[in-house]
Computed example of a mutant assay.
Amino acid sequence: MRNLTPTSITQAFADYARDAPSERTRTLLVGLAGHLHSFVRENKVTQAEWDAAIGALTRATEFTDDKRNEYILFSDLLGVSSLVDMINTAGSGTPSSVLGPFHIEGAPELPNGGDLWKGQVGEPLVVSGRVTDGKGAPAAGTVLALWQNGGNGLYAQQDPAHSPTNYHARLTVADDGSFAFSTVRPVSYTVPDDGPAGDMLRALGRHAWRPAHLHMIVHAPGHRPLITEFFPEDDKYLDADAVFGVRAGLVLPFRKVTDRGALPAALAARDSLPMPVWAATIDLTLPPA
């Protein structure tokens, strides 16, 4: 198209894509280009500013490998990952949240009532609960994918002192939907901020902290996987999560338990679990199938 103007270029892009084989792909990319064009026009973006943006994306490749993805980090810190999650979440059941960058497939099996803590650094935490469907029936056959950081603030992928599956597990709930396990109380930590995504945080005067949390993916027969995370109600970063992952329904009391008899039976019998311990109850309600 000849004689393009700052206004007509947006329609020109849409016209060029009229023969796209996928209408959905055309809708998404034409919409994206339109928003980008509007952003450039409204903010009168300079050549130097655009070069800086391209440079940040180029630098992101230097920080991306099989353990870290700087582009996902940008998405998280911009709130896009959380927004995609929220607009696609079910309207009922336990809320979902962002996946996070440290989930691994093929984690070791953990028996119901098993231990992830193993005496490592940090305060032991007992987690118990029940998984039910939307009608209150136990969700037998449900498998929980569990992962979290250690008491030193590091995930297994960041900590060469431990195995690559440390604090990662898959647990099958009992026939009545109940589950229990012991682990370490998670701690607040900072997302990686040594790359261009961190530069963006500093340019905005933002911090890189996430509140402590437990990750979980709920795999239940006849239901979509539920990706979520749970936060202790006393964490000081709940209202300033760098990746916008906190939901009101995912904030839980973590309480101190001094009486071993108050623990789930499978854990009360374990003498290696020192008292007192922290305890949290997580009752999950699955969204509709």
Rank of each mutant, 00 (worst) to 15 (best):
T10F: 00
N69W: 08
L146S: 05
R255L: 10
V277C: 10
E70Y: 03
G198K: 04
S97Y: 06
V187Q: 04
T7P: 00
G205D: 02
A156F: 03
R224T: 10
L125H: 04
R26A: 14
L144Q: 07
D194A: 09
R270Q: 15
S128N: 15
E109M: 13
G249A: 07
A242L: 00
I282H: 07
G245Q: 03
P287V: 11
A242N: 10
W209P: 00
V80W: 09
H223R: 09
Y155R: 05
I9Q: 00
F230N: 03
G31E: 11
P264K: 09
H35S: 14
T132D: 03
A180E: 10
L284D: 02
L273S: 13
D175F: 00
R26N: 11
G55W: 02
H37N: 11
T10P: 00
R270D: 15
V121I: 09
V173Y: 04
G141V: 06
T142A: 07
A139G: 02
H215S: 10
A203G: 10
A107M: 05
L238W: 05
A266K: 14
P101S: 14
P253M: 11
S38K: 06
V257C: 10
P196H: 03
N69K: 11
A279I: 12
A20C: 13
G245D: 06
A242S: 12
A137F: 00
R41K: 08
K67V: 05
A48P: 01
A174D: 15
G79H: 10
L171W: 01
R130E: 12
T132Q: 05
G261L: 02
A145W: 02
L171I: 09
R18N: 09
A268Q: 14
A156C: 06
L73M: 11
V143Y: 03
D15M: 05
I227N: 09
V173W: 05
L171H: 00
A220H: 03
Q148A: 09
H223N: 13
V191D: 01
V127P: 03
L110G: 14
Q158M: 11
R130H: 12
D159M: 08
A53D: 08
G195C: 02
D194P: 00
L201F: 03
D133N: 14
W278I: 10
R260S: 09
L250E: 09
V131C: 06
Q148D: 15
E123D: 15
P287D: 13
L284N: 00
R255Y: 04
V251K: 14
A280C: 15
Y237F: 11
D66Y: 08
P95R: 13
D19H: 08
V187Y: 01
G34R: 04
T7K: 01
A156I: 03
P232E: 02
T132V: 14
K67F: 03
G34A: 09
G249Y: 02
I227W: 05
D115R: 12
E109N: 14
R202Q: 12
L77S: 09
L263H: 10
F102A: 09
Q157K: 10
Y237A: 12
D85T: 15
T46K: 06
K67A: 11
D65C: 08
M200N: 01
T190Q: 13
Y189C: 00
G134R: 08
